[in-house]
Amino acid sequence: MLTLREKYYDFDQISSKVFKCRRDDQFFTMKIVSILNEENQANNGVPYWIIREISILKELDHINIVRLIDVMTDGPDLFLVFEYLDNEFQADFLKNPKMFMYPQMKKEFLYQILNTVAYLHARKILLRDLRPENILVNVRTQVLKIALFGAARTFEAPLEAYSSSVGCLSYRSPEVLFQFGCEKYSTPNDVWAVGCIFGEMLLHRPLFSGPSDVELLDEIFTLLGTPTEETWPGVTSICGTCALMGPPQQPKDLAKEFPMLNPDGLDLLSKMLCLCPNYRISAEDAVKHPYFKGV
């Protein structure tokens, strides 16, 4: 087996643990992860989450996912070799002003996100934490890449922006918010997050931004109406907080809230932002929605 330095060369440091490197004519981004941890690593070998995450990343091969190409070991350090994304790729894609100049491009990127989510769901993988910060786009080629497993930092996403958004709730679905910390994620939660990103693309500001669970739920219900037993069977039994939120609210007319969106787009948005997770559209069906005709 070749050693790290035999296989890769021309190391160029990007941040303390991230390097750009080269093999033959190709560039890669290398991330160093130490498996040592004072607390438990001396007793417990390679941490379980590192084994799980790497082995799952190794199975994924999708144009819209930042690809893990190689894993090298050297002592207690792991070197994760990722596909290299050049400077044209910018993280936190909604902050890119060019995004909003071409409506067609938004649709194209939304499609790529949904397509990736459908790919992951078919493999029983949940994103759980899909946020615009983890999405990189190349506006010129119109290629979008989702950085899984915290790899966003690998691509020079600004440190502050990343850290401050770790506690960000904006993209969490009502069913997850209802559980207050007891996180029970499932596939509809990811679709909700894409719905929020869709809304954010259109409004040029986060669709929901409540600083706390309760405020966020209130914002969601203000737009989409308070759920009832008819719209979300069983909601009264899980919704201990509904009572805290004052009188029930009627859903707003999405066509007025999103005047820029055509009827197909409105239909898709409302299906992705369906309060009841069981009735929410799946990523697989969303990709086939008429809104994407011609993409």
Partner: peptide
């Protein structure tokens, strides 16, 4: 759905942080 393999949690992301 709740049995699906859960990935990319907030914790997992931070474990790969610099």
């Amino acid at each position: 759905t709740s049995n699906l393999l859960l990935l990319c949690s907030e914790n997992s992301s931070t474990c790969f942080d610099d």
